[in-house]
């Protein structure tokens, strides 16, 4: 029996979908059976980030409405045989699925899969309620900014009230040079304020944009710093004790020269 993990944040645009796609791919790289559930009904994105948008036939609403069986709606990943996506509906709204239906769906999926990762929409309304309904664990994504951390705190409170297991934190888009000059909260500051366990830190990385352009999660690229950080996170989820990656690898002079001249390795 697998486990259901929701990726959520409160604030929009902090990297939930990016995180879901990368961690899911990472778990599949290690041979696990993984399904990614896009619960952002009306604003589906996970399909595009995974590069699977052209293969969608049925979606999550079709499944709960009984138009198709769950198996029929699952889209197989291009790269890994045991990685699947259950896409959100694009034309419906959040109320098309209820928390109870979502719970039932997760129950069914975890019979088949080792990991069920649910990509949550932003906010604290029904879309969020749906996303957490069937989850045992939660990953909270935040950026080192006041508004994002504040919303993360709110979400942590709501999850606590729901009796969910202690959530863990992913700090995304950390800019080391800004931390160094004292213009960005560092890891310790945020852990101290939110008082939850740290799952990992993802640096700001241009390659994330490139990878979304291509529909290939950054974790597949060993040269991407964010990709490597996601790799570490997915190993931590599997119980491995992986130390935090040093983020002070400012681009070397050579690398900067290469980029200037257009020979970038990324």
């Amino acid at each position: 029996m697998g486990e259901v993990i929701v990726v959520t944040s409160g604030k929009g645009g902090v990297g939930k979908t990016t995180t879901t796609a990368n961690i899911g791919t990472g778990l599949a790289m290690d041979g696990h059976k993984v399904v990614l559930v896009d619960s952002d009904i009306g604003l589906r994105n996970l399909d595009v980030v995974m590069g699977l948008e052209n293969r969608i036939v049925y979606d999550i609403v079709d499944v709960v409405d009984g138009f198709c069986r769950l198996k029929q709606a699952l889209i197989k990943d291009k790269r890994f045989d045991d990685l699947y996506l259950l896409p959100a509906a694009q034309t419906k709204d959040k109320t098309a699925v209820s928390p109870e239906q979502m719970k039932g769906l997760c129950e069914e999926l975890k019979q088949e899969f080792d990991y069920v990762l649910v990509d949550s929409p932003a906010g604290i309304e029904q879309g969020f309620r749906n996303a957490i309904a069937g989850a045992e664990k939660a990953i909270i994504v935040t950026t080192p900014e006041v508004a994002a951390v504040r919303d993360a705190d709110r979400i942590i409170g709501l999850l606590e009230a729901e009796g969910k297991e202690g959530p863990s934190l992913v700090i995304n888009r950390l800019r080391h040079h800004m931390v160094k000059r004292g213009d960005m909260m560092d890891i310790e500051d945020m852990i101290d304020i939110l008082a939850i366990d740290l799952l990992g830190v993802i640096p700001e990385d241009e390659y994330i944009v490139v990878s979304t352009n291509r529909g290939e999660p950054a974790i597949l690229n060993k040269n991407s710093l964010a990709g490597r950080a996601y790799r570490n996170i997915s190993r931590r989820i599997q119980g491995e004790d992986v130390p935090l990656m040093p983020l002070d690898t400012e681009p070397s002079l050579l690398e900067r020269l290469r980029r200037l001249m257009g020979f970038s390795s990324k």
């Binding site: 900014e145 006041v146 951390v149 504040r150 705190d153 931390v179 000059r181 004292g182 213009d183 960005m184 909260m185 560092d186 500051d189 304020i193």
Partner: peptide, 15 residues
């Protein structure tokens, strides 16, 4: 000065 301390302080109060 560095804005991080300001951010932390504002966050603490708002929370």
């Amino acid at each position: 000065g560095p804005s991080k301390e300001v951010a932390k302080e504002r966050l603490r109060l708002v929370l």
